[in-house]
């Protein structure tokens, strides 16, 4: 991911639209950008939208776990939404399901 991810904030919920390949190389930039926004906006909920992510290795899992810890620190929550079918195997393997952060399929309210 070369460009900054697109984001949306409604006063409570911060949505980050991730795109392209998420690996160890790109995760650092996404992490820095997202954390700066969280610190600045103090959202109660962070939505990580994965609909435009074409590839992800376990760095994408670390990215979610790190934001989960950070949002917990602020008393907030994290949800991962619009997970493409190709990434499902990785998400399931990660055990993130136990943290209750993964949301099913393509929700209509997320497609906008």
């Amino acid at each position: 991911m070369l460009l900054k991810p697109k984001t949306m904030f409604d006063g409570k919920v911060l949505t980050v639209y991730l795109s392209g390949d998420i690996d160890h190389h790109s995760a650092r930039r996404i992490r820095e950008y997202t954390d700066a926004l969280i610190g600045e906006l103090k959202p109660v909920r962070l939505l990580l939208n994965y609909s435009a992510v074409s590839f992800m290795d376990s760095s994408g899992i670390g990215l979610i776990m790190g934001r989960y810890r950070m949002m917990k620190l602020y008393g907030g929550s994290v949800s991962v939404v619009s997970i493409p079918p190709a990434l499902r195997k990785m998400m399931e393997l990660s055990g993130l399901g136990c943290l209750d952060v993964l949301e099913g399929g393509n929700e209509e309210n997320e497609s906008a």
Binding site: R31, D57, S59, I61, L63, M65, G66, K89, L93, S94
Partner: peptide, 15 residues
Amino acid sequence: EDERAGLGFAVMQSF
């Protein structure tokens, strides 16, 4: 500290 999930080998194994 680098937010490594510790899943590298597990992923290689299962993929």
